[in-house]
């Protein structure tokens, strides 16, 4: 049994890392907004989904314009991901303006904002479904592929106890882009003036406003950054997994949120780590559950496995792995 698990390990790592980085970037969107507003923005998963659809929309557009054959795939990819990120970023800002800010102004209870975010989530799903069906006749869309060259890591010949791992070239794209986004965000939050303002607002909104910081603008920036990253990750997801539908944001959103909680909600590096961990656990479970339970549970139970881990972590460390259970001095 152990031998079988070890054999599969390289493939589990490749798949787990891909999925994990996707979770990580989406988790950041949840954790940043939570850090500032104490709002679980359930619409964030659907921003991710919308990004995937906008990205595939651009790809179809490029194909119909005949640009795909004349431009290198990497360039097409960069144009598409940047445009999609800008659009979803703008959508995040607009949603905050229209749906959340008026509630904040009236000092509505946080629960109201939470329910609102669920409403926004449904609106986005139906809107995307409507447009997708209108344009393609089906709400499940198979996106054009850009990077589908398959590579094999021939690890078996070096270490015979491992099986070979296979991946598509899109795996490398996902990996490189998500890592760039994670590092970029970390630098933004910790090294720039606006990142500092964001942290100040998260820690004490009232005092930040006494220090000339326009809190609403900081909140807008937060939504822009989180939603742009979420939308860009949607594009990556579309390239990596090919088929998308308007409901992919729901389950992925829940898992990314789980990752954020796992890492300690409000903690950005925690969200990164939590996402990566969740991806790895999930893929490990998918590959090995059947072996581990003697065929009783198949890989479809992978989510249960991941959530059991979450529950265990939270029982023993309720603030999450990197959460701060600090008492603040007054």
């Amino acid at each position: 049994m152990l031998q079988h698990i070890i054999q599969l390990l390289p493939q589990v790592l490749v798949d787990g890392i891909t999925l994990g980085f996707v979770y990580a970037v989406v988790a950041i969107g949840y954790t940043m907004v939570y850090g500032i507003l104490e709002l679980i923005n359930f619409a964030h998963g659907d921003i991710f989904m919308t990004g995937a659809f906008i990205g595939s929309g651009f790809l179809f557009l490029f194909i119909s314009l005949g640009l795909m054959s004349s431009l290198p795939a990497l360039l097409v990819f960069l144009i598409v991901i940047i445009l999609s990120a800008m659009i979803t970023g703008g959508m995040g800002v607009a949603i905050e303006r229209v749906a959340y800010r008026p509630l904040r102004k009236r000092n509505a209870p946080k629960l109201i904002a939470l329910i609102t975010s669920i409403g926004i989530s449904f609106i986005l799903e139906d809107l995307v479904r409507f447009i997708a069906e209108w344009k393609t006749g089906n709400y499940i869309v198979t996106a054009p592929s850009l990077f589908n060259h398959t590579f094999t890591i021939d690890i078996h010949s070096i270490m015979p106890f491992f099986n070979n791992a296979k991946f598509q070239s899109s795996f490398i794209v996902v990996l490189v882009v998500t890592i760039i986004m994670l590092i970029g965000l970390d630098l933004f939050v910790n090294k720039t003036k606006w990142g500092m303002a964001m942290r100040a607002v998260a820690q004490d909104r009232e005092t930040a406003s006494l220090m000339t910081i326009n809190v609403n603008r900081v909140i807008s920036v937060t939504f822009f950054v989180g939603s742009a990253l979420g939308g860009a990750t949607g594009v990556l997801f579309m390239l990596q997994y090919g088929t998308i539908d308007p409901y992919i944001g729901f389950i992925l959103g829940i898992k990314a949120f789980t990752a954020a909680v796992l890492g300690g909600i409000g903690n950005i590096r925690g969200a990164m780590f939590g996402g990566l961990m969740l991806g790895l656990i999930e893929m490990f479970a998918a590959a090995n559950l059947s072996t581990l339970t003697g065929g009783l549970f198949g890989s479809e139970y992978k989510d249960v496995f991941a959530f059991i881990i979450l529950i265990l972590v939270l029982i023993f460390k309720p603030e999450g792995l990197f959460g701060k259970a600090t008492i603040e001095k007054v």
Binding site: M196, R199, A200, Q203, T207, M211, I213, T326, E328
Partner: peptide, 12 residues
Amino acid sequence: FPRLTVRENLLV
């Protein structure tokens, strides 16, 4: 701001 450094507090 408890989790900003002294320098960052001043910069705010």
